[in-house]
Design a protein around this nucleic acid. Structure first.
Length: 282
DNA sequence: ACCCAGGGCCACT
DNA sequence: AGTGGCCATGGG
């Protein structure tokens, strides 16, 4: 079906924005997206329109929320301080980026993995993890696609028999999915969630401050990963993750100090524009 | 071979 | 509260 919006959407920029790691451009302007155990193709039509291969009902119940269609991103760009030259340019460059409403578990695990990896390495690591303990969804573009594993699948990571380097990997012909020293972090997080199945639901209803503190309680989750998880996995648009790239922006463009609270409650959106723009130009 | 990556933990002050 | 060494792995 074809979708027309009031607001701008740019699929390529979203795919390159570092918030999601399972989008693949399979042809010009055409993206294969795997989320919520489904595989769909999104194709850019105009700057405010795209197509998706699903019916109206599925779009309304799943993908409209996922793509955060109800948030006015052009309005956020319009609110950027014109006196801030860098941010004005970043906002223009990033027009069309949206903050996806991604699955909280997938986001948490993925950003624990992300530490000390570049984006291509994160992508290949996540794909290995999906292949090792996700569900087979079908063949697409000549590739076997697997869902991001649920808690049951992830629990294979701490299989008692195999002591972590699990039989699931052997079956998939993989080693430890390149998780490296993050393996025990993931295992600990997964076991906490299995012991408390309503924990995600609980986290979701906390306010920003309380959510942040709770996220910091997971092993392997520090300030940066907690910020990314809150922003991308719980759609808390006011979180402002500071990674090596944003640190460079702040140091080189703002003399070491940038007050993101100026853009509350959308500081996280501003952060995405900075991140995207700076990476495009350096 | 080399450098670094959407960092966090732990042991020090 | 702030700092520095260390961590496992792979992409460029």
């Amino acid at each position: 079906m074809r979708v027309k919006l009031e607001d701008t959407i740019d699929l390529k920029k979203i795919a390159d924005s570092g918030q999601c790691f399972r989008w693949k451009e399979v042809a010009d302007s055409r993206f294969r997206v795997c989320a919520f155990g489904r595989v769909r193709y999104l194709t850019q039509e105009g700057e405010k329109s795209f197509t998706i291969d699903c019916d109206q009902e599925e779009y309304q119940t799943i993908w409209k929320d996922y793509l955060d269609i109800d948030t006015d991103y052009d309005g956020i760009i319009a609110s950027i301080d014109r006196a801030d030259d860098f941010l004005t340019r970043a906002g223009q460059a990033g027009r069309g980026i949206r903050i996806l409403r991604q699955d909280p578990l997938e986001t948490l695990i993925t950003f624990i993995i992300s530490q000390r990896k570049n984006i291509p390495a994160i992508k290949s690591c996540v794909e290995k993890l999906c292949h090792a303990c996700g569900s087979f969804l079908g063949n697409y573009d000549g590739e076997e696609i697997y869902s991001f594993p649920d808690l049951m699948g992830l629990s294979a990571l701490s299989c008692q028999k195999c002591g972590g380097d699990c039989c699931t990997y052997k079956r998939a012909g993989l080693d430890s999915c390149s998780l490296g020293y993050r393996m025990p972090y993931i295992q600990d997080t997964v076991s906490r969630l299995i012991m408390n199945p309503s924990l995600i639901e609980y986290l979701d209803q906390l306010d920003d401050k309380a959510l942040y503190e709770e996220l910091l309680g997971f092993k392997g989750v520090g300030k940066k990963v907690a910020n990314c998880t809150a922003l991308f996995g719980f759609h808390r648009l006011d979180f402002f993750p500071i990674d090596v790239w944003i640190k460079r922006v702040i140091d080189q463009e703002y003399g070491g100090r940038f007050d993101h609270t100026l853009y509350s409650p959308f500081a996280g959106v501003i952060q995405q524009y900075m991140f995207y723009y700076y990476r495009q130009t350096h």
